[in-house]
Simulated assay, not measured.
Amino acid sequence: MKKLWVDLDTGVDDAQAIMLALSRPNVEILGISCCHGNTPLKNVLQNTLRVLKVCERLDIPVYKGCKLPLLARKQHASDYHGKDGLGDVPDPDPPSLDLLQKKKGPDAMVEAVKKNPGEVTLVATAPLTNLAVAVQLYPSFHTKLKALFLMGGNINSRGNTTVCGEFNFVADPEAAYIVLDRFTCPTYIASWEFSCASSLPWSFCDQWLAQCTVKAEFMKKITEVSRKRAQSQDYQKEITSGQGFNSCDCYAMAAALDESLMLHNEQVAVSVELEGALTRGMMVVDYMELLKKKHKANIMKKFDLEKFQKMLLKSLQ
């Protein structure tokens, strides 16, 4: 069994990533830690339980993580995900928050990794606050991970939240800096520009959501707001290349589930800018090796989109 820990801020693409993982019979999700991000933490917690309920997997433990960034002002992505994070689709019978575990997210994450040293793959699709807190509290935590897969950052200084910054990193630049500086396990990054360049045709999205299942019907409802936003002229100006369905978080999750999807990665040291007036939160890619960092991250460059589409289709069956 492939053991996963998932750290997220459940918006629409996080929900899609959860469903991807749950569709794989050889995957065990040890736990899910929730973080501020796409929507306030209370919504993230509720949304995560909603997705697990649709998938009939409320047995997976869900933990409350950080509701605020380390230093930055909190911000959300309601323009894309809806105010509640899942397209503002009412749930007449939402799962009770009493289902949440009592232990805090960063502590639970560390405990699970300590119990399974060298076996746990951590997939992070939110601002990296929980991970930064975990490694600050337990400095050797990252050395016991099998690998880290994250969605965040940018490789060509093309932002989607600020001029030069991607949302997850901009939402907590200090946390992103700590994680990229301290984590020395194998690290794989699905950047903003990579996800844009790897977008799928809207015709595939139609096929994906047309499946006659409870999961597909749920996904179709919660994606209406984000699809409308993604097909707007303003959004098309933001993306770097390709026009179509772009489930950012699913690239990191899919790669963690099946590394063969990554057809080409680029190994390079990375960091995060913290002080620039226009560049705060931007991921720095050190091609000249001026940072003198031994640890290199694997930056995803080319993906097996045919296999990726098959995985997405199966996730809603």
Rank of each mutant, 00 (worst) to 15 (best):
D7Q: 15
D9L: 08
V12P: 07
L20C: 13
N26P: 06
E28T: 14
S33W: 00
S33Y: 05
N43Y: 05
L45H: 06
T48C: 08
V62F: 01
C66L: 12
L70F: 09
L71T: 14
A72R: 08
D79V: 11
H81D: 12
H81Y: 01
G85F: 00
G85K: 04
L86P: 00
L86D: 01
V89H: 03
P95I: 07
K103S: 12
K103E: 13
P106L: 00
D107N: 07
D107K: 02
N116P: 04
N116L: 08
V120Q: 03
V123E: 01
T129I: 03
Q136W: 03
Q136E: 09
T143M: 04
K144H: 14
K146M: 02
F149Y: 11
C164L: 09
F169A: 11
E174L: 11
L180P: 02
D181P: 09
R182C: 10
F183K: 01
T184H: 13
T187M: 13
T187D: 05
I189T: 05
A190P: 01
E193M: 03
C196R: 03
P201F: 08
W202M: 10
S203N: 13
Q207K: 15
Q207M: 14
L209M: 14
Q211E: 12
K215P: 01
A216P: 08
M219H: 03
M219I: 07
K221Q: 15
T223S: 13
S226W: 07
R229T: 12
A230Y: 14
Q233E: 15
D234H: 13
T240I: 13
G242A: 12
S247H: 04
A255Y: 04
L257V: 05
L261N: 02
L263G: 06
N265Q: 09
V272R: 03
A277G: 14
M282W: 04
M282D: 06
Y287G: 03
Y287Q: 08
L291G: 11
K294C: 09
I299W: 00
D304F: 10
K307Y: 01
K307D: 09
K310A: 12
S315N: 05
L316R: 05
Q317N: 13
